[in-house]
């Protein structure tokens, strides 16, 4: 890899001043499980890398009556093993526990999981300057696209690789961002942006901003949630398709369904169609089946990824049945 300067950030407020307003100049590192690969493969060649692990206090999970506050440096292992999260925010524990491998979960952080770059094989090829890297072509369109988007694609057809993002959006989480002008907070759902808004980035962060914390409201009594993920290997693999489902239940009826898909769109993809098919219904096998069908009714598969439509339909139904 290329040489770079390495700087330890002292506190959150200092971070924006350490970062350039040019994406190519500086990068942040926490667990490094994504960045190191990008550096070694010459996908990124920053002049400076800013270490966030030196910031005290960002590795804490605070659970109280208002919900969960999870610092950006909390590891995926800590999230997956947290008893309150396992019990009340099940979808998040399951999603965090499904990431990669134990070694990666031990160092990989929540902030990194939410802000990781796409796994598209054209993007990850150092010899290809694709649309995502400032070129003018998304090579997946004419090329091999079996792992690419079936929703929300264009002009870039990557899929968002995060497992925790769909889970947190299903739980109604908000993100806290610190930048040169101070702090801002937004629903995590609004944090991610489609490629037709910005083909080169996956979220709203400016080059000198940092995601510092995620807040998750306490789920109402009687809610149920789960995360299902289909991947080719049993571990150490990204989702071909995943679903985060979070249902508010009252008397056997689903009063409010949150259904967010992973691995199928350039951002975590809220399936309003599946939610509509479930809201106000008692979840029977037939309703679950309809939810699956509704989830993929507007899918736009590419040449090689039609099977992902089938997978997505099936796991949405399966998730609904699991929560019935």
């Amino acid at each position: 890899m290329e040489n770079f300067a390495y700087v330890n950030a002292a506190d959150v407020e200092q971070v924006p001043s350490l970062l350039s307003d040019d994406w190519t100049e500086t990068k942040m590192i926490a667990g490094g499980t994504d960045l190191l690969g990008e550096l070694k493969e010459y996908i990124e060649t920053p002049k400076k890398v800013v270490n966030l692990k030196s910031i005290p206090g960002l590795d804490k999970i605070n659970a109280d009556a208002s919900g969960l506050a999870i610092g950006a440096l909390v590891t995926l292992t800590d999230i997956a093993a947290h008893p309150t999260i396992q019990h009340h925010y099940t979808v998040l524990a399951e999603a965090a526990g499904s990431v990669a491998s134990p070694q990666i979960r031990n160092v990989g952080t929540l902030g990194g999981n939410l802000c990781q770059r796409p796994r598209c094989w054209y993007y990850r090829n150092p010899d290809i300057i694709c649309l995502k890297k400032g070129g003018d072509t998304c090579y997946a369109v004419e090329g091999l696209n079996k792992y690419h988007a079936i929703f929300g694609g264009g002009p870039v057809y990557i899929v968002h690789p995060s497992d925790t993002a769909p889970a947190l959006i299903a739980l109604g989480a908000t993100a806290k961002i610190v930048g040169p002008n101070g702090e801002r907070t937004m629903p995590l759902e609004d944090f991610f942006v489609l490629p037709d808004v910005n083909p080169q980035r996956e979220n709203v962060l400016e080059p000198n901003e940092v995601l510092t914390e995620v807040h998750v409201p306490q789920p109402k009594m009687g809610t149920k949630s789960t995360y299902l993920k289909v991947r080719e290997r049993g571990s150490f693999d990204f989702a071909l398709s995943s679903v985060a489902a979070h249902f508010e239940m009252s008397g056997g009826t689903c009063s409010k369904a949150n259904v967010v898909l992973g691995g199928v769109a350039p951002i975590p993809w809220r399936s309003v169609e599946a939610e509509a098919a479930l809201n106000g219904k008692r979840i029977t096998d037939a309703v679950a089946k309809q939810a699956g069908e509704a989830a993929v009714a507007n899918a736009e598969p590419m040449t090689d990824n039609g099977y992902k439509v089938t997978l997505t339909q099936n796991i949405v139904s399966r998730a609904a049945m699991r929560l019935a």
């Binding site: 094989w121 091999l144 049993g234 571990s235």
Partner: peptide, 15 residues
């Protein structure tokens, strides 16, 4: 296109 051990999927112990 998949010249990495992330994308060329050799089995892990879970398999």
């Amino acid at each position: 296109t998949n010249a990495s051990l992330m994308d060329y999927k050799i089995p892990s112990i879970v398999e």
